[in-house]
């Protein structure tokens, strides 16, 4: 369970200038809940995720994860960064196994689990490639496998499917949903795609920018397990998408304060 309590973040951009990236954000995410964050570019989605991950410190407010205030990163919260952040000196396999080695998992077990994840993200055969030899979408899939490998309770995913083609994207959305329905991890998921947010989430958080605030939270009442093909014809799904897209259009353009 994640409880974000009146969190604000102010960046000192230069000597005298300050930028209020997040203002007074309060949000509770139940254990096993899938919550997406939608909002215009620069509204502070990544920053919010970093604060929950313990990578960036909030200016005020608190984040509580399972009754403990967040003071730094931990293996209970697994990030997938917008920039992939693969270790360039490690092969694909080495990257996926890194967290498992760190946790002290026996080598053969770590190897088996890593191969299984690489198969899931359709990268078997690429075990010995270095990140520089992969396309953007492939890097992103390695990054997802690397984080899933060490089984964090909470996934913090920052546009994890942003660099993928439509086909792989759909495929991985289904896979993620499959994994999630099996072990019900808590997921905080940043995306630009309304369809993706509605398809995956229990709730969609909409943000406005300058400063980043929560504009609205929409509960998605669609039955699970969800099936993409069936959903596309589902009237309620279509209504959600249209409604949220309308609300996004109402947003003023990002302005520099």
């Amino acid at each position: 369970m994640i409880s974000i309590d009146r969190v604000s973040k102010q960046f000192e951009t230069s000597r005298a200038r300050r930028h209020l990236a997040l203002s007074d954000i309060s949000l509770s995410v139940a254990r096993g809940e899938f919550v997406s964050i939608l909002g215009p570019s620069g509204c502070g989605k990544s920053t919010l995720l970093y604060i929950v991950g313990g990578f960036v410190e909030q200016s005020s407010g608190a984040v509580i994860v399972d009754d403990n205030p967040v003071t730094g990163p931990g293996p209970d919260r697994g990030p997938v960064f917008q920039e992939f952040a693969l270790f360039p000196w490690k092969t694909v396999l080495g990257n996926v196994m890194y967290g498992l080695d760190q946790r002290g998992m026996p080598k053969d077990e770590a190897l088996a689990r890593s191969r299984e994840l690489l198969t899931m993200v359709k990268l078997s055969g690429y075990e010995n490639f270095y990140p520089k030899e992969l396309s953007g979408g492939m890097k992103q899939r390695v990054a997802i496998a690397r984080t899933l490998a060490y089984r964090p309770n909470i996934l913090l995913m920052d546009e994890p499917f942003g660099a993928l083609d439509a086909h792989t994207r759909t495929k991985l959305q289904n896979d993620l949903l499959g994994i999630w329905e099996k072990d019900r991890k808590t997921v905080l998921f940043v995306t630009h795609s309304v369809e993706e947010a509605v398809f995956l989430s229990d709730r969609v958080v909409m943000m406005t920018s300058s400063p980043g605030r929560i504009k609205d939270i929409i509960k998605i009442n669609l039955p699970r397990p969800r099936e993409r093909a069936a959903l596309l014809l589902n009237r309620r799904y279509q209504d959600y998408v249209v409604e949220i897209e309308k609300m996004m259009d109402e947003q003023p353009e990002t302005r520099v304060s």
């Binding site: 730094g72 931990g74 952040a85 760190q102």
Partner: peptide, 29 residues
């Protein structure tokens, strides 16, 4: 060294001294 490399390692449980040797050193090599 890209900050997110260090963050990824920190999330896996590497301490600050371990990050210096196992992340910063190879990344700066």
């Amino acid at each position: 060294v890209e900050e997110k490399l260090l963050w990824s390692a920190a999330a896996m449980g590497l301490s600050a001294p371990a990050r210096l040797i196992r992340i910063v050193l190879p990344a700066a090599l």
